[in-house]
């Protein structure tokens, strides 16, 4: 079980490196799809079926949009690649960040050893208080319903924003640019 998780997560990490380093944008986008779908299996193994399902749906939509975008813009030409100095500086900074994170994670309880205190209250009370068999949806739609309302607002704002950005002035004469 543990080794399946390690293997899948390593696969996801390899996919994300491929997504960043591939020359063809289409391949890079497909590699990002591999990352998302691999992660959804990891979520399933971590006993989170709701997240796994959502991840699959979201990943399919994101990859579709990214493929459309990738077909419209030029690929990463050698002149767009960062020089060795910037590459090493960036990689060094990323390594430092990983080191700091791993050091910080040492203070957490070991992986899989215990839950945080509120979990027990939710698990004991939520099914009876809300009548929902699935405690995740009970938290999402009952205890934190305002969060979910905010989430819907964020999605609406993002869609309106994307439409406003992509809308082109069609019939009217193009207004002068500032």
């Amino acid at each position: 079980m543990d080794f399946v998780l390690y293997g899948l997560t390593a696969f996801v990490i390899l996919g994300s490196i491929a997504a960043l380093e591939m020359k063809s944008l289409l391949s890079a986008v497909i590699a990002v799809g591999v990352v998302g779908l691999g992660l959804s299996i990891v979520f399933l193994l971590l006993a989170a079926p709701d997240i796994a399902i959502t991840q699959v749906v979201v990943e399919v939509i994101v990859v579709t949009v990214l493929i459309r975008a990738a077909s419209r813009v030029p690929a990463e030409t050698p002149s767009l690649r960062a020089g060795p100095a910037r590459t090493f500086a960036g990689a060094g900074l990323a390594l430092v960040a990983v080191g700091l994170l791993v050091a910080a994670f040492q203070t957490l309880p070991a992986f899989g050893s215990q839950r945080f205190a509120p979990a027990l209250w939710y698990l004991e009370q939520a099914p009876d208080l809300t009548g929902a068999a699935n405690v995740v949806t009970a938290v999402l739609l009952d205890f934190r319903a305002y969060d979910t309302l905010g989430e819907a607002t964020v999605i609406l704002t993002a869609v309106v924003g994307a439409l406003a950005i992509l809308r082109r002035p069609s019939s009217r004469k193009e207004e002068s640019h500032v």
Partner: peptide, 19 residues
């Protein structure tokens, strides 16, 4: 059962990531 609270919040986070 595993902790439901992080799962509910990650669910929100994934959907906001889509936007």
């Amino acid at each position: 059962a595993v902790d439901p609270v992080p799962q509910a919040l990650v669910l929100t986070s994934i959907v906001i990531g889509l936007g």
